[in-house]
Amino acid sequence: MRVPRYTTQKVAFGIITAAAVGVVIPLVLVIAYIVVQGIGAISWEFISAMPRSGMREGGILPALVGTIWLTIGTAVTSIPFGVGAGIYLSEYAADNSLTRTIRLAIINLAGVPSVVYGLFGLGLFVIFLRFGMSIVAGSLTLGIMTLPVIISTTEQALASVPQSFRIVNASLGGTTWQGIRKVTLRQALPGIITGVILGLERAAGETAPILFTVAAFYLPRLPHSALDQTMALPYHLFVISTQVPGMPIQIQYGTALVLMVFVLTMNLLATLIRRYFRRRRQW
């Protein structure tokens, strides 16, 4: 006997709905758990003061400032190369062995474990280029790690702009670059910005790449220059969770909460920008 079609459909819808709802549950639980555990630690002092008594008291200001500097540094190093490479691959690159090699390299770059980036950064920036453990070395390492995300989202955002716009630009005597500047890039911008922010957001939360390149275990002052070491939120969280005996649990979750809010704020920003541009888009 055959099961009626509508029954099969109902079962299928039930399963995929459950899958969709199921995805949300861990996210909600993680956020709720961290908020409940950490909210008690949050105060003005917590985010504006130096740590004291072996980090068991005081605030996390140097780690927060360090993460902000590293995020800016990552943006500065990864956006020009990433967006540039994405434009090249989408708009200029011919389909030949060179560009296929570049694409392959980017895919593989995305698959490299973050701790390997950390060791690479240690070897190249800290030791060989003599930047030492510094914000510059950390930013460059995080920047290279972020490149694949920015390149591929830029390429995809440009690829989604209708080909007919490019042909119209050419038919009106525009060069490829004029078409990119006046039409294609403008249309792809929301997608690119979203990809950039998501890439930076991942970089802001990474521990392994900064471990050997910039992060200080305990440095209760703000960085003096780009060649200075600094504390950073993810590494600080790792340190106070595993390396400091007698650490109040509330401070651990408070730190996690600050990091989470920092990253989610960037996420929200990406969403708002995308929404703003999408409303203005006409095709």
């Binding site: 007919s164 042909i167 119209v168 039409v183 249309q187 095709w283």
Partner: peptide
Amino acid sequence: RTRVGVVFAVPVPLPL
């Protein structure tokens, strides 16, 4: 291409 202009079958206004 500025001396020889072309109009296509499907109008493609640029998003401007």
